[in-house]
Design a protein around this nucleic acid. Structure first.
Length: 565
DNA sequence: GCCGTTTTCGGCCCGACTGTTTTCAGTCG
């Protein structure tokens, strides 16, 4: 459906028609019931957004696996042209002009055309457009080899689910970069302990979603998945071998190198995919902890194994007791159907309570973000009343009234102080003017931080992983200001953002800045993405005291009030 | 292409920014 919409866009279809297809694609993805069942019961038309035409096409796709309309569209333009939509600043209209005039069919040809300065002569385009296209292509190329953790991890987990049920599989683990929870990874790496390698590999090769089998050896199998990522399965037959391979393959290379050298000074050898030995006498390792025991150090969790001081800290007994997902007591950045979210506040509260949360904050968009149905002052005051009412009848969770208020171009906020002061929590964030220079942007954010009602700055750098660079901002200045003004910085847990990232979050901690891990969810299912933010926090060495939404409600409320006296 | 208690047509997704123009089209959140 989404692909149909992409084609239509380039072909210049009616924008509302396109929107209907995009919306339908989203609705189908989010269906709680299997679409085949809905079709069987002849209830497709009951889904809002699905009409007669879409019903017929969905039926056709389910029954025949394809759709004539889609085929027709595909005939009209080269398939690879859709890829061009990923280039920031390039939309359907420009792509069409480029295609019709230069016969450019894919990204490589576009790159060549831009390098030959052919783009600048086209209608509506100039040297700047050409440069932006080249920049965009470079960004895509840099990211081509990488997949975001938010895509790779769930796939890895679903493969594990399949393989652990295979006869003879005693243990199976995700390893490599995914195990360390890096924000972007090159491949999925799995390690199995099984007495039946043959059948394990066979199941692995026959899973759904495989594009091709790349390589197979007795102990190894590599596949390439439809979604564009490689998955490796390595097989061990003995526990000893499994544990040392798990440790070794988890990496990082630098971490391992440091550990190997320490092992050397103690007379041990850690060998890749083999066991640990001393003077060629093998040492049995039953669990990963044993590897660290041998070197007289406490267990280092995979998230810390980046050679960023963790080995030294472990030897000195100074490893941080990093935050765990179970420590999170609430989510402080959630959108409801009052703005662009899809659930009611009550649905969100109930879902959050089921997650074990003690509190949440509803933080819809403010009025200037019209596309997200930002709340007017009047609507916001009404929402505050509704939340009061909800709190009086719902048990087991507290709902805070909040807002994600836009930081306008000049650093002023989208609501006056007399509105902001009515709220329990105020998040401020940038959604416009991404191309301001770093001085303007830094001053703009700092100005917002100086508002006495602002508690949190959300997604502080504005990046979208693999899609958009953050805006230019002098992070050191923002961190300094945050410390001085008791401003909390967000670790946005959305796997597309992870903003602050691990490096900046660690820097913030070192400067004494507190943070909040929030999902920014627009639907209840995405409240589950909290774990990705916690991964960042772990990699940043953050402890509970650094993260305000691990605090009990009263402590949190006291902290939020600090600036308000 | 969907929707409708103002229902079979006409509205729906608005407004700011960018880079191109020289008054505005295209893109994006």
């Amino acid at each position: 459906m989404n692909e149909i919409a992409d084609y239509m866009e380039i072909l210049g279809e009616n924008i509302y028609k396109i929107a209907v297809y995009r919306k339908a694609s989203k609705i189908i993805k989010e269906l709680k019931q299997d679409i085949q069942d809905i079709l069987k019961e002849d209830r497709l038309r009951e889904i809002p957004g699905i009409g007669k035409a879409l019903e017929a096409k969905i039926k056709e796709i389910i029954e025949t696996g394809e759709c004539a309309y889609h085929r027709d569209l595909k005939k009209q333009i080269p398939e690879d042209l859709l890829e061009l939509l990923k280039i920031p600043g390039l939309g359907a209209k420009k792509i069409r002009v480029i295609y019709e005039n230069l016969k450019v069919k894919n990204i490589d040809e576009l790159k060549a055309a831009a390098e030959q300065k052919k783009i600048r002569d086209l209608r509506g385009m100039g040297a700047k457009t050409e440069l932006n296209i080249l920049k965009g292509i470079k960004m895509l190329e840099d990211n081509r080899a990488f997949t975001i953790l938010g895509i790779a991890l769930p796939i890895a987990e679903s493969i594990i689910d399949i393989l652990k049920r295979v006869e003879g599989v005693e243990e199976i683990e995700i390893t490599g970069e995914i195990r360390r929870k890096r924000e972007m990874v090159r491949q999925i790496e799995l390690l199995a302990l099984t007495e039946n390698p043959h059948i394990t590999k066979k199941v692995f090769k026959q899973m759904p979603g495989i594009k091709e089998v790349l390589e197979e050896t007795p102990n190894r199998c590599s596949i390439f998945l439809d979604v564009g990522i490689k998955a490796d399965l390595e097989i061990t037959k003995e526990r000893n071998e499994f544990i040392s391979a798990l440790y070794y393959s988890t990496g990082s290379d630098k971490h391992i190198a440091k550990m190997v050298s320490i092992a050397g000074t103690l007379g041990y050898r850690i060998l890749k995919n083999e066991t640990i030995d001393i003077n060629d006498k093998k040492i049995t390792v039953e669990k990963e902890q044993d590897v660290f025991n041998i070197l007289n150090m406490p267990y280092i969790i995979p998230e810390l194994r980046e050679d960023c001081g963790e080995v030294e800290a472990a030897l000195e007994g100074e490893l941080p007791k990093v935050i765990d997902i179970a420590d999170i007591k609430g989510d402080l950045h959630i959108h409801s159907n009052w703005s662009d979210g899809i659930n009611t506040i009550e649905e969100i509260a109930q879902y959050a309570r089921d997650l074990g949360y003690k509190y949440i904050a509803i933080t819809d968009h403010s009025k200037s973000l019209a596309i997200a149905k930002g709340l007017t002052e009047r609507e916001l005051l009404k929402q505050i009343e509704e939340i009061k009412g909800l709190n009086s009848r719902i048990k087991g969770i507290s709902v805070l009234s909040g807002i994600e208020v836009d930081i306008l171009m000049d650093g002023t906020l989208d609501y006056p102080d007399n509105i902001l002061k009515e709220l329990d929590i105020v998040i401020a964030s940038v959604h416009t003017g991404f191309k301001q220079d770093k001085f303007q942007m830094t001053n703009r954010i700092i100005k917002a931080m100086n508002n006495r009602y602002v508690n949190i700055i959300a997604h502080p750098t504005g990046r979208l992983l693999g899609k958009r660079q953050g805006y230019e901002v002098i992070v050191d200045e923002v961190l300094k200001e945050a410390r001085e003004n008791n401003i909390i910085l967000e670790i946005n847990a959305s796997p597309d953002r992870l903003d602050l990232n691990d490096i900046l979050a660690r820097k913030a901690k070192e400067m004494g800045v507190k943070m909040a891990v929030n999902t920014d969810a627009h639907e209840v299912l995405r409240l589950e993405e909290m774990r990705y933010g916690v991964f960042v926090a772990k990699r940043a060495w953050l402890e509970n005291k650094d993260i305000i939404n691990t605090y009990p409600l009263n402590d949190l409320l006291n902290l939020l009030k600090i600036k308000k006296v």
